[in-house]
């Protein structure tokens, strides 16, 4: 992968991480976490681990859904 492309995806990853820490609403945090996950995926593809990528991409929403279960229980509104 090109260095410039790698720099853009790395910047995207850091944008997602900082956005997750800085936002206050739990829903905003989960959406920024989605950006972080999106930034990780091209690095997995670059190393050639396509099977790991498919497994990770299907597991990541599961952990988001588990956190959403806790939020529904607590009654976090908009």
């Amino acid at each position: 992968m090109n260095e410039l492309v790698m720099a853009v995806f790395g910047a995207m990853l850091l944008i997602g991480a900082i956005g997750t820490v800085r936002s206050h609403d739990p829903f905003d945090k989960l959406i920024s976490l989605g950006v972080l996950v999106a930034g990780v995926m091209p690095f997995l593809a670059d190393r050639g681990y396509l099977d790991v990528l498919a497994a990770t991409a299907l597991i990541a929403p599961l952990s988001t859904i588990f956190i959403l279960m806790a939020m529904r229980r607590e009654g976090h509104g908009p």
Partner: peptide, 29 residues
């Protein structure tokens, strides 16, 4: 605890990237 749980996802992905740089497929799975 909800905020801490969401923040705990960030180092999980960081650890995944560190494992990726050592080329350990089974560890990643």
């Amino acid at each position: 605890y909800l905020t801490r749980l969401i923040h705990l996802e960030i180092p999980a992905w960081g650890l995944l990237l560190v494992m990726l740089s050592y080329d350990e497929a089974l560890a990643l799975f």
